[in-house]
Amino acid sequence: MLIDEKITRKIATLAKIDLSEQEIKEYTKDLNNILKWMEELKEVDVSNIKPVTSITENKLYERDDISHAIYVEQEKVLLNAPDKVGDYFTVPKVIE
């Protein structure tokens, strides 16, 4: 066993995903199978090999340091808010 339920619980906490007991059991099994399958990568000799950081790593261009962000009206953005008050998104209280 590469991972047990305790580790699955820890990963779920890191990923901020609430899982049921049933899900913890299932994912522990799945993850073990998948990670076992990945073990074969250890056969590959990667000494002196640089990790890939980007597929376009040789083709990056210089550009002017200006933003090309698009402008979206505040109202339009707020339309998608699951909960809001006036022009603000609301969340549960974080400061006591």
Binding site: I3, I7, T8, I11, A12, L14, A15, K16, I17, D18, L19, E23, Y27, D30, L31, I34, L35
Partner: peptide, 18 residues
């Protein structure tokens, strides 16, 4: 996230996080 994501997405997010 637990309620909003489906089974396969959660599986991959767990692998990715690990």
């Amino acid at each position: 996230r637990g309620e909003g994501f489906g089974k396969e997405v959660k599986r991959r997010l767990l692998i990715g996080t690990y």
